Simulated assay, not measured.
Amino acid sequence: MSGILDSVNQRTQLVGQNRLELLLFKLNSRQRFGINVFKVREVLQCPPLTSMPKLNALVRGVAHIRGQTISVIDLSMATGGKPIEDLKTAFIIIAEYNRSVQGFLVGSVERIINTNWDAIMPPPQGTGRASYLTAVTEVENELIEILDVEKILNEISPLNTEVSEGFSADIDKEKNKDKIIFIADDSSVARNQVKKALTALGMEIEAAKNGLEALNRLKELAAETGDVTDKVGVLVSDIEMPEMDGYTLTAEIKNTPELEKLHVVLHTSLSGVFNQAMVKKVGADDFIAKFHPDELANAVQKWFGND
């Protein structure tokens, strides 16, 4: 087990090439789940947890780790399952999402696998847990489920999605009246958050569920005039998405003549640890860490119609 924990801490810088590494874990059953290693700070055996008043029912307590107090969320309970009972044998995955650090209580941690985003598929429809899944993949003939952590966190502590009262949209509506803001994000919660924040700009918004779907739709729009910027003002894209990640999507856009002038804002929960060199390498115009409505709206406004 110590080898797995050391590996997590040493391999969190993997980005690009449409590749990713998944840390596999279990909750209360044989079903395996995965989390992107790039979001993981460390993995440790569950330390003593301190109960505090008025904690959300899904938060089992707080842990004091390396001088920081971290809320510990029971991932089994958060996805509709039974609580993880034996804390002495359980583990905590310390991860960073949306500018904050959380601990996720899991039953066991197994190993890290190396895979490609094109092997990560949207979740199947009609399964009971589907609303908490953002993607699935197959490893050794077994289905691995990837949880929509942003949905879980939003249920525990909903984010503000409205821009501040002092925000003033500064877009030439007449010049851009026929253009849209395009969003690519695999999390339904994240898509809705972005839509609500960007409605303040007064523009039409269209969304795709992953990078491949976004690329195909952008090519369709470009085919109408020969240049996608005649139809789309800016693309706001997540980085982690099934089938094609945001880095690869950006690179494809910048290497396709009818798409290359499109401004791309990468918008991701990989806050604090993202690879700035990779953002520049693929040609993205901006990077915004999730989730601050004013920052996002200002970033989109800056690039909208800025040829």
Rank of each mutant, 00 (worst) to 15 (best):
S2P: 05
I4Y: 08
D6Y: 13
D6M: 14
S7P: 04
Q10M: 15
T12D: 13
Q13T: 13
Q13A: 13
Q17C: 06
Q17I: 06
N18S: 06
K26D: 05
K26R: 13
K26M: 06
L27N: 02
N28C: 13
S29M: 07
F33K: 01
I35V: 14
N36C: 10
N36Q: 14
V43W: 01
L44D: 02
Q45A: 07
P47Q: 07
K54W: 02
L55C: 05
L58E: 05
L58I: 12
R60W: 03
R60M: 08
R60F: 08
A63M: 10
A63E: 04
I65H: 04
I65K: 06
R66A: 13
S71E: 14
D74S: 07
S76G: 14
A78F: 09
T79R: 01
T79A: 09
G80S: 05
K82H: 11
P83D: 10
L87T: 11
T89F: 09
T89A: 15
F91N: 07
Y97V: 11
N98L: 05
F104Y: 11
V106W: 02
V106H: 02
V106C: 06
G107L: 13
S108M: 03
N114A: 11
T115Y: 02
N116A: 10
D118H: 15
I120Q: 08
G126K: 11
A135I: 05
E138D: 12
V139L: 14
N141E: 11
E142K: 08
E145W: 03
D148T: 01
D148C: 10
V149P: 01
P158S: 08
S168D: 09
A169K: 11
I171C: 06
K179S: 07
S188P: 10
A190K: 00
R191D: 03
Q193L: 11
Q193R: 03
V194S: 07
V194M: 08
A200P: 01
A200M: 01
L201D: 00
M203G: 00
I205H: 11
A208I: 01
A208K: 01
L212Y: 05
E213K: 06
L215N: 00
R217K: 14
L218H: 03
E220C: 09
E220T: 07
E220Y: 09
L221A: 03
A222T: 09
A223R: 13
E224C: 04
V228T: 01
D230I: 04
V234C: 07
L235G: 04
V236T: 15
D238Q: 09
D238M: 09
M244Y: 08
D245Y: 04
T248A: 12
L249W: 10
T250C: 15
A251D: 13
K254P: 13
E258L: 07
K261E: 09
K261C: 04
K261N: 15
K261W: 02
V265C: 01
T268N: 11
G272P: 00
F274I: 15
N275C: 11
N275A: 08
N275I: 04
V282Y: 00
G283E: 06
A284H: 03
D285Q: 01
F287C: 05
F287G: 00
V300S: 02
W303S: 03
